[in-house]
Nucleic acid binder design. Structure first.
Lengths: 323, 323
DNA sequence: AGCTTCTAGGCAATCGATTTCCTAACTCAC
DNA sequence: GTGAGTTAGGAAATCGATTGCCTAGAAGCT
């Protein structure tokens, strides 16, 4: 390549990277030669010299799933603009595999690591004293000095309840996932507190179950059979909400006329498939992924950020709570 | 590291890689030293020397979605075992972005590239005369010499129809996605042919629409209003199937007693959320991903495979076609 | 014309591991 | 005891790009 342009490799390097003092004409000649030969610099050689790889690792601690993808897209988005690539590692909930991937990423001298997972609950740090910056996205690290970006689920629950209040409902119940699940309890507590702040009681005790449509249907039956006086239900997930809507309709209740329903996740296939379309809370996972990547970049560039960053949720109103 | 073990770097390299003639004792001493210092070889330096990066790129030509993930998981699975890592690139249906990613991957000297996408339709090769092997997964390349791994959708449609025949249905209709969509037409044709081979006519003309639940509901209405005599419907996707089931039920038809329904994709959230649970065709995307990765590895190791490989589908029977 | 100043671009060290060649030392046999 | 054969491990070249240093030649000044 350098030969074609009639210069030394050193000069060629300077030409392509805009370093050194070169005549514009020479620079152009080199660029043309590079173009002509389809020359692309060997990244390995470059990073060996510069110490930067322009690569980050993304470890999903549990399997790549519905939550990881938007995070991944968001991160890829923020990093791609900075010309960085992403190594994707799926640890499948296996600590051994996780450590193995960690070693691999370190051996590849990634510039940074993003750790994600399915649950928002805090997890043990993936490593201590690592030679590269780490940012946790969606999940958070148990070590408060680590940088984590998580959705503000309390904010989400509050928005859901306040929306229901805004459309005139007062007898609000909450149906959610398993009690041992962090998100379920956080959302349930926030729901109760928001109601309490308005001087209201829940229309029924929180119903804990599974994150499934089947549980939503079942929960509808429970609410109706206990004779609870309910005019709105805030559900811990869109799947539960959709099941609940079906359950209510099967029992002759109209949504939203008799019972307004709000879901959580704003999962397109659920909110659109549901009839009526489901009002839901969006955690903006893509934004979280983007945010995490940006914080990682900041840390790489020497402006480290510590602590847990929360990001607000967004309510997306649809027919299931229409006035 | 070499210093700690009291050997030269060359010897250390041999010790860790099992090359050269070393006293077992020396080898062990080096390994201990490496362990103690948490030494991991710099991948850049290694690949600079060996020419291998133990890295493959995966380009999803459209956005990372429901189809890409299982493919990705399968590929990661097959490659992870061989200690290789995956660069994920989301081209978002943008040819510019695609070429940009291709350049990046080439500059990173990946050992191979897997190209995937949302549609099974053949696409233009991502590049010609590339210095690295390329395998297409799920989508196929228009160049027959390229290696592609695709689901055998004809096989899938045939299995669906034969299953319906096996459970005693004879008046079978087909509802599917847009007519301009490759998968829709392929499946529709295979459906018609399978019926014809049994000496049967479709119970209604193929209904083309969208890949959505809404279309499924609408299609149920169309089938009923035209008075078609139908005892089974094979749908081009699980979403359509689920919508159709709801539509049928809303009109007082029972599934599967009056109408048996088979979907396509075996998408857990749809097949389980549907009541009754949906019989569906599984394309084994994970297997396709794994297969593609294995073929890529074979090609990297000097045993190139050319042409379009098809992989059979699998029928997963559930309540919607129970006898 | 002669000296200084500036500039374009070449030379060579460097990054970290691999690998080839080579030598010192040790073993063994005669 | 000496030469041949073997073995363990070191020295140095190598991969490809970057970059600090240096110099040849041009330009400017007196």
């Amino acid at each position: 390549m350098a030969a074609l342009a009639g210069v030394s490799t050193g000069t060629a390097s300077k030409a392509l990277n805009g370093r050194g003092a070169l005549r514009p004409e020479t620079r152009q000649r080199v660029q043309q030669a590079a173009e002509q030969l389809g020359f692309v610099a060997n990244a390995a050689a470059r990073s060996l010299q510069t110490g930067r790889t322009y690569t980050v690792g993304m470890i999903t601690t549990d399997s790549i799933g519905r939550f990881s993808i938007p995070l991944l897209i968001g991160a890829e988005d923020a990093l791609g603009a900075g010309q960085m690539s992403v190594f994707l590692c799926d640890a499948r909930d296996d600590p051994i595999r996780e450590q193995y991937y960690l070693r691999t990423l370190l051996s590849r001298k990634v510039d940074g690591i993003i750790v994600t997972g399915r649950r928002t609950q805090a997890r043990a740090p993936i490593g201590v004293g690592l030679p590269v910056p780490v940012v946790y996205a969606f999940i958070s690290s148990a070590d408060p000095r680590d940088c984590s970006v998580v959705p503000d689920e309390i904010d989400g629950a509050r928005r859901a309840v306040q929306h229901l209040l805004a459309v005139g409902r007062r007898r609000i119940a909450h149906v959610t996932g398993p009690e041992h699940h962090h998100s379920a309890t956080v959302r349930a507590r926030a729901t109760a507190e928001t109601l309490a702040a308005e001087g209201l009681q829940p229309a029924a005790p929180t119903l804990y179950g599974e994150w499934s449509e089947a549980w939503g249907r079942q929960a509808a039956g429970i609410l109706l059979s206990t004779g609870a006086d309910v005019d709105a239900v805030f559900c811990g997930s869109d799947q539960i909400a959709r099941g609940l809507v079906e359950g209510m309709q099967a029992a002759g209740r109209s949504v939203p006329a008799d019972v307004a329903v709000v879901g959580f996740d704003n999962w397109d296939v659920m909110v659109d498939g549901c009839r009526p379309a489901l009002t839901s809370i969006d955690m903006d996972l893509e934004g979280i992924g983007r945010s995490a990547a940006e914080l990682l970049l900041a840390t790489i560039n020497g402006n480290p950020v510590h602590g847990r960053q929360t990001r607000p949720c967004r309510l997306v109103p649809r027919a299931s709570t229409a006035v």
